[in-house]
Design a protein around this nucleic acid. Structure first.
Lengths: 335, 335
DNA sequence: ATGAAAGCGCTAACAT
DNA sequence: ATGTTAGCGCTTTCAT
């Protein structure tokens, strides 16, 4: 530990120049003679000087912060989004600051308020379903607001993602085209994971158009996991053993479903088709392939970050307001 | 977007009081008459006032930030650590700020410098193997430094984690006790994932003590994944088909190994035992159990966060400098 | 219970 | 190429 933190003033004194010259030398801006630059750099080095960004940002009226709010870290999907954001920000000098809302709108509001108080240059939030007061705060911030992952709703400003309603519809059509007729559903935490709910609703719309409906469903209030998917699948199949397909709220749940079927000795996909959502690496490495729609989550993060950079650089630029991704379905073989 | 950001001064003016009174009312500190408090709160509400933390922290010479540096987000382990840190910080008013080093020491140094420039109240970094210049920066910061996950090395200040060397030793002993004698190793990115390397070294120490060594190994420079574990296992078993056990750098790799064995029709664990590290939820939900040591990563995050809080609150307190966790081995049935 | 003055560490704007 | 002045928005300290 030891000595007190050194300030720019001390570096300047040590180098025998004014605060301003030291500042310029350290930032490499404008014209500073090579000689003095070196003196300043040396002094900074010797004092282990670390600039104070609070002062820098307060004084210059800008920060290098991009605030990011995601609902969870427990599902690998959001860390992957964050990785994409980090990559998209790389080389820009911008720094992502993450907050976790735990799928809780009140917590989300508080986190957003807290993040805004750091005067970020842009903010990236997950989803489009913030309550009115949160939306008002975001609008008032007068910075680029980028809502990601979901497209089904009204964005505050920029929007990068996919339509979960359509993803559900597409999967339903693909499964019907593959000849499946007795379908079940397994999901979890639908009251909080609104995007999973939108996929289910889309799926059910197509079923209805075809004069069908889920034969049976199992929904739990806990968050998704492989273990939960396994358990709910066992329950579902105990009630209705002759399903020929189960749609899951996501790949974690579907993987659990696959493991349940393997233990029951049900051939997948011949006897029963397992369909999830996300296209996790896990899903593609499984001994038996499951059907899934691949959400380009890393790319969504990267694109959102780049959009943020552009919008910061050119506040009145002609950036696209909405960037649409379409998930690709895989793992369904013909009927 | 619309209007300019409002300041405390404007709120004060709108409420007909001084800046100072408005500040006190907003923070709920000391004595402000109920009447004026309400006036101020109302004015703040109406102006959608969001305080400026840059100014607050610069003025008060303290922040509510806890900087956190992890090597990656692609492996679920670190998001789980972050979740633990978030939980541990909950209710303290502290806010975690995350940075990702990509297992790159130069990048880690830059990220740490950048984080320190925000004047965090404490910093949590992964591992003990930072180069000298990074260590100096951390020492100079004069804030609590908490190094997590690893114990095998010399901490700057506080240390919360487990001994990976010992984890490797313990797993080796358990596998030998279960009667395994022809062991192989599958790993990845050992040059960057130093903790995986420490586990391997520990494992090999015990093998040597017993007059044994890995019969064969497969190591790739890419980062761990299920798919990579599967591929390397195929290669390993093609070279040496009669292994009775494979130790993996982690559970992702081991899961890939299990899937490879399933496809080859090798009974696990009767014919060949698969051993990983981490105790992922995935590993416990697998149709066939693999052996693993459960790393209490969420708990490590939570404990590190609590330690940070205490060290911030009482800089000269009597906090323990080192907190040791011992991973628990599971999934090995008797010989 | 409220206010006025000073200052946190830095940069922008204006000298020279 | 370097220095001086003012001020970012808030809290601290000291009055009243």
């Amino acid at each position: 530990m030891g000595t007190r933190k050194s300030t720019l003033e001390e570096v300047a004194a040590a180098a025998g120049v004014s605060k301003m010259t030291a500042s310029r030398a350290l930032r490499g801006t404008s014209d500073v003679s090579k000689d003095t630059r070196e003196k300043v750099l040396l002094a900074a080095e010797r004092l282990s000087y670390v600039g104070n960004r609070l002062a820098l940002s307060l004084s210059s009226q800008r920060t290098n912060l991009v605030a990011v709010v995601v609902p969870s870290m427990s599902n690998i999907v959001f860390p992957e989004v964050l990785t994409g954001i980090s990559v998209g920000l790389e080389g820009s000098g911008m720094q992502a600051v993450f907050g976790i809302s735990d799928y809780d709108v009140a917590k989300e509001r508080d986190i957003i308020r807290d993040m805004l108080s750091w005067q970020p240059a842009a903010i990236i939030v997950t989803g489009l379903d913030q309550p009115e007061d949160t939306v008002r705060m975001l609008q008032k911030a007068t910075i680029p607001v980028i809502q990601i992952m979901d497209l089904d709703g009204t964005p505050v400003d920029f929007n990068v993602g996919l339509s979960h309603g359509k993803a559900g519809e597409d999967m339903a059509r693909a499964l019907l085209a593959a000849g499946r007729r007795r379908l079940g559903y397994v999901g979890s935490a639908l009251d909080r994971d609104l995007r999973a709910g939108k996929r289910k609703a889309g799926f059910e719309r197509v079923l209805k158009q075809n004069g069908l409906a889920f034969v049976e469903q199992q929904i739990d209030s806990a968050f998704s996991s492989i273990a939960l998917g396994k358990r709910l699948t066992d329950t579902l199949l105990a009630a209705v053993p002759d399903l020929d397909c189960i749609y899951y709220s996501n790949d974690d749940m579907a993987t659990g479903g696959l493991f349940a079927c393997m233990e029951l000795g049900l051939p997948v996909p011949q006897r029963i088709l397992i369909a999830g959502f996300n296209g996790l690496d896990l899903a593609n490495a499984l001994p038996t392939r499951i059907a899934t729609s691949r959400s380009p989550r890393r790319m969504i993060g990267e694109v959102a970050a780049k959009l943020a950079r552009e919008a910061i650089a050119e506040p009145d630029g002609e950036q696209p307001k909405t960037i649409v991704f379409t998930p690709e379905i895989s793992g369904i073989s013909g009927p």
